[in-house]
Structures are given as C-alpha cells and as structure tokens.
C-alpha cells in the first residue's frame, strides 16, 4: 500500500503555495475566477465551520490555545478574472470549546482561554496559481484579544499593532480554507500582556501562528460549493 508523506497530504496546498511564491511569481497571475452553483456576480454570502481543532500557538514558548469549535461568516466575490486582492472578506469569527467551562478554548497547562477576534472585516487575497484545485492566499487584518482563566489578558496583532497577515489556501475538493501547517507564514505577534500572564507561556513580542481549517459553504441563493481558480 503506497503511503504519502504528511507533507504531501497537507497540501498539495503547501506545494502549490511554494510554486506560487517561487517558480511562478504571484504577479504572473492576472486574476481569479470564483463561482458557486446558483450564485451570481458580484458577491455571495459565505459561512465557515471548522473541520477539526483550530489552534493559535506561541512560537517562542510553545504554548497553544486550541478551540474545538469555530464559526465564521463573510462574503465572497463571484465572477471571472477578478482582482487578486479582496476576493473575500471575513466579517465575524467565533471560537470556543463547548466541553470546557464557559465554553472557553483550551489553553496550556489546564488554563482555559476566551478568544475574541476583532478588526473586522478581514480580507482574503489570492497569492498564486491554482494547482490541483488548491489556491494559495492570505488573510489580512487579523487582530485578537485573549483572557485566560489565570486572568492573563493579552492582545495579538500584526507589526506595529496593525492588522496581521497569515498565509493559507482554499481547496476546491474539500472546500476547506486552511491556514498554518508546514511552510505557512504569519506576522502575528503578541502586542501586550499584563502582570498575570505567565512569562513561561506568553510574552510581548512572541510570534503567533494560527492553524486550522474551515469548510466554506455559500449561503442562498447559492446551491453548491465555492470554486476558486486562478485565471488563465
């Protein structure tokens, strides 16, 4: 039985992203085609539900926050040869772990954490060509704040406190918008922490990665899944 390595599985996406950033410059991509059965130009509302856990990890200390439930809403453009920037927006994101007290997400060492995303809408851009149905992209404008059961208050954003950016991809087969994993990038950093925050777990300036997959479903009038392809 042939086994693929996990790197291959993650993505096709990662490989495609690498191709997009190196072999074929993103600038070579002139536009993007986005469609969904029943949807019409210029846009269609979308919702996202997590496929598996969603995690945010402090890359300096190794501490992670894991949420078992995630829901998002937003809008996707519909059309042909659309600009690469702003192909979709995210207008809300809610993260939780219903099995935990108060539904807070699971933090490190038994701490539970309330995560609040902010600075909406976030914007999704296409950054490379579609390969094997996987289109690389990035999500920008990300800010969030956290409160831990240890009463630690912290904020996360991009450089200088502006909205941050993470890389990701959309898979036409699974209809998953995936961030993180091998080869992914993030410029999110911890902006502030208070005196209750354990320095063993989180410090100002620590870089943060965001990992997770959301299955995207277009709302009515769309009747089928979203398909994204770089325009050729």
């Amino acid at each position: 039985m042939r086994k693929l390595t996990r790197n291959t599985i993650i993505g096709g996406a990662v490989a495609a992203a690498a191709i997009g950033f190196t072999s074929i410059p993103a600038s070579a991509v002139t536009g993007v085609d986005i469609s969904a059965p029943g949807a019409s130009s210029p846009s269609n509302a979308i919702t996202g539900v997590n496929a598996g856990n969603v995690t945010a990890k402090d890359n300096s200390t190794g501490a992670a926050i894991t949420c078992s439930k995630g829901t998002a809403s937003g809008t996707s453009k519909i059309g042909t040869n659309l600009p690469l920037a702003g192909v979709a927006t995210v207008s809300s994101l809610a993260l939780s772990s219903p099995a935990n007290p108060s539904g807070w997400c699971s933090g490190p060492v038994g701490i539970t954490v309330q995560v609040t995303a902010s600075n909406f809408p976030w914007t999704m851009n296409v950054t490379g060509v579609t390969a094997s149905g996987v289109t690389p992209g990035q999500l920008t404008g990300i800010k969030a704040s956290i409160v831990g059961s240890d009463n630690c208050h912290a904020t996360v954003a991009g450089p200088g406190g502006a909205g941050g950016t993470i890389s990701g991809n959309y898979n036409n087969s699974t209809h998953n918008l995936t961030t993180g994993g091998v080869g992914s990038t993030s410029n999110l950093t911890v902006q502030t922490v208070d005196a209750n925050c354990d320095p063993t777990l989180i410090n100002a300036g620590d870089s943060i990665s965001l990992n997770g997959a959301f299955t995207i479903t277009p709302s009515a009038p769309a009747t089928g899944p979203l398909t994204i392809n770089s325009h050729t």
Binding site: R2, L4, R6, I9, A51, N53, S173, T174, G212, A213
Partner: peptide
C-alpha cells in the same frame, strides 16, 4: 497525518 489516501474529499484530509 499518517493517512495515505488518494481520495479527494473533505473526509480524508488531516483534521477532518
């Protein structure tokens, strides 16, 4: 991630 499956579907990818 140890999964090795050529089927393309939401149910066959890591984290599903």
């Amino acid at each position: 991630f140890q999964t090795a499956c050529q089927r393309a579907g939401a149910g066959y990818v890591p984290s599903a």
